[in-house]
Design a protein around this nucleic acid. Sequence first.
DNA 1: ATGATTTAAGAGTATCTTATCCTAATATAC
DNA 2: GTATATTAGGATAAGATACTCTTAAATCAT
Lengths: 150, 150
Amino acid sequence: MLLSKSCVYALRASLYLASKNENGYIPIREMSEKLDISFHFLTKILQQLTSEGMLESYKGPNGGVRLTRSGEEISLMEVVLAIDGDYMLTECAFGLPGCGVMKPCPIHEKWAETRDNIKYMLESTSLTELSKKGKEFNLRMTADGGFNDI
Amino acid sequence: MLLSKSCVYALRASLYLASKNENGYIPIREMSEKLDISFHFLTKILQQLTSEGMLESYKGPNGGVRLTRSGEEISLMEVVLAIDGDYMLTECAFGLPGCGVMKPCPIHEKWAETRDNIKYMLESTSLTELSKKGKEFNLRMTADGGFNDI
DNA sequence: ATGATTTAAGAGTATCTTATCCTAATATAC
DNA sequence: GTATATTAGGATAAGATACTCTTAAATCAT
C-alpha cells in the first residue's frame, strides 16, 4: 500500500473537518457514521492527529475535534507525516539503510525523483482545495455517497 | 511502505541475476549470501517469480534460477507486478472501491497523475540499465557492499 | 543404485496492522 | 449532584506480512 489504512482514514476525516467551515467541535461519532469508518478505530487515529497538534479536541456534550488552523494552511503531507511518518520521503527501493546521494543504490536516483513527485503533490495540495473541488463536483467521500451527503 | 519487503528482495535478486550475464543457473543459496537475504524467504519469493514465468529454475547440483528473457527486456514494473500486484496502478488514496474518472474521489485526479509517474519510472527502467549503472559506479547492493562485491 | 545438491512446498512462528471492546476521565445540562 | 455526552487509553483479538523450519522431489556425480 502506498498509504496505510489509518492514513487513508485520517485523510478522509481531515477533509471532512475542513469541509465544515463552522468553528465548533465535530463529534467523532458523527464523522465515523458519515464516512463509514469504525468509530473506535477513527478515534485512535484522530487522537494521533491531536497529539501532533493538527487537531484539538474537547470532551463532553458539544465536544469533538476541530482543525487547529485553517484548512487552507494544512497540506495532505501534514496528515501523511503525522500518521505514516516520513518513509515516503526517505525509503530506499532496495531497502538499504542510509541510501542517498552519498551512498546510492542502483535505483536511488530515479526513485528519489519519483518520491519528490509524490512529495510535491502532497505538499502542494491543501484540505481546502480538495474541499472546494469536492463540493463543486459532488465528488465521492464514501463507497456510495457524494460530498454533499456529508 | 511503497514496496513490500518481498518486492524489495525480488528487485535486488532480479538485478543480481541480470548482472551475471552467464547463461547458467545461479543457486539461490549464493544469492541469499551475497545479497544478505534469508535463504528460505528468498526461495519463496523467487518461486513466485518462477511461477509468473519471469524466472526458470533447475533442481540438483549446478541448479538454481535464471531469467527467462534478457535483462534488457525485463522492467522493474514486471517484478513489482509479480510480487506486489497492481495496487500501485489502481489504489485510491481515499480507499474507495472503483475510484476512477467515472466516480472520482476528491484527490483522484492528482493521485492518478502521481501513480502514472511511478508507473512510468518502473516501466521505463530495465534490469540491464540498472546493472550497467551499478557496475560502472560500483553502487550499493547490500548495506555494506558495493556492486562489484557480488 | 547411492548419496550429495538444489529447488518446491507446506507448516509453524513472530511481528505489525487493523479492528473491537471496555473502562476511565472530562465536560455539559438539568 | 446526577445523568448524559464525549474523548482518552488500555487490553485483546483477528488478519496480514515477514520470516523459519522441515520434508519432499528432482537432478547430478560417482
